[in-house]
Amino acid sequence: MVRFGLLGAGSIAIYRHAPEISSHPCAKIVAIYDPITSRAEWLAEQYGGEVEASEKALLARQDIDAVVVATPNAHHARLTLAALKAGKHVLCEKPMATSLADAKKMLSAAKRAGRKLMIGHNQRLMPPHIKAKQLLRDGAIGEVLSFRTSFGHGGPEMWSQDKGAHTWFFKKEEAFVGSMGDLGVHKADLIRWLLDSEVTEVGAFVETLAKCNDKGQPITVDDNAVCILRLANGSVGQLTASWTYSAAEDNVTILYGTKGQMVIGANPEFPVEVMLRNGEMAQYKVGGVSTNEAQLPSGIPDAFIDAVLDDVEPEISGREGLKALAIVLACLESAASRQIVKVAY
């Protein structure tokens, strides 16, 4: 049995972590802390656990084996380091930190403590992406030469428990980065995992085009990012993240190979489609991809619990989280400098 403490009772805990942990036969929620006590109380009523008065009190509990860090981004590294120091395994939301220096400290702390550190990059666990990975390994479209991957919706202000333009997602001091850290980091992780190759260089425009805060001023983080990536295997492609796709969500990846192309996530009935240059076509009905409107199991808590119980390194380890973060940081640097930037891991 893995006994959990939750740091943060916002939307990601409400819709993903708490229900998935509580439904697992080998896990339970023991304690919850959120600075807004009413949120922690509501979550405890729904899924069990005691409400703690502080982060320190939760981390001091001896009946907790693992902690979920589900707070605004600026607190991920601080709380992860504290939890590891307290001897807890940690499942941390993405992006794992706001700097590579802090991410490396998290990796070192996990190694020093002998505890698991996993980052919540859920896209690679979605059934269509798993099927796509299998097809790519089988050579279904040959060598991937280029790609387009996008993740966009109308913005986090109605997903966040801080409903409206005052949400922490819009504040640089809490979020650090906007659509690129909320959505782009998912696709950064996904594309390097799908293609089994690291991103080496990026060029990016990371902009604030439309979103305003509760004072009617432009938000202090980005709401759109359009990035060009070069991978070590020679593939080049485009990654797009947006909070201004107000009519419909977009979580589509298209891979262009030497034998044909693969479309992932465009067709709800057949989420994976392969079209070959000889005219052949294959469609796969393999389950869906979770959206803000249609929440599906993420698989993240299950994978983390398995890693803890089996005493193995999580597939989406801290090192994997660091690599996705490095791509985001390189894109931010490129946007600021208007230069092509090499990714530093």
Rank of each mutant, 00 (worst) to 15 (best):
268 P>T: 08
313 E>C: 12
143 E>T: 08
135 L>H: 02
150 S>F: 09
30 V>Y: 00
146 S>R: 01
145 L>R: 13
319 R>C: 12
179 S>W: 14
147 F>T: 08
11 S>E: 14
207 E>F: 02
184 G>K: 06
139 G>W: 00
248 A>C: 13
301 P>Y: 07
311 D>G: 04
224 N>K: 11
267 N>M: 05
168 W>R: 09
121 H>D: 04
267 N>T: 04
24 H>M: 07
257 G>S: 00
194 L>K: 05
232 A>D: 12
199 V>C: 06
73 N>F: 04
190 L>E: 11
44 A>M: 03
211 K>F: 04
224 N>L: 15
65 D>E: 08
1 M>L: 12
172 K>A: 10
174 E>W: 13
224 N>C: 15
285 K>L: 08
175 A>E: 03
207 E>K: 11
273 E>R: 07
94 K>N: 01
166 H>L: 09
234 G>N: 08
295 Q>N: 09
227 C>Y: 01
285 K>V: 12
147 F>H: 03
319 R>H: 14
209 L>C: 15
42 W>C: 08
342 K>S: 15
28 K>G: 14
342 K>I: 06
332 L>A: 12
333 E>N: 11
276 L>M: 11
252 V>S: 06
12 I>V: 15
121 H>K: 03
107 L>R: 07
278 N>Y: 05
101 A>G: 03
28 K>L: 04
259 K>A: 07
128 P>L: 05
230 R>T: 09
23 S>V: 04
170 F>K: 08
313 E>P: 00
93 E>M: 08
25 P>G: 11
130 I>R: 15
50 E>H: 09
161 Q>L: 00
19 P>H: 02
128 P>F: 05
285 K>H: 15
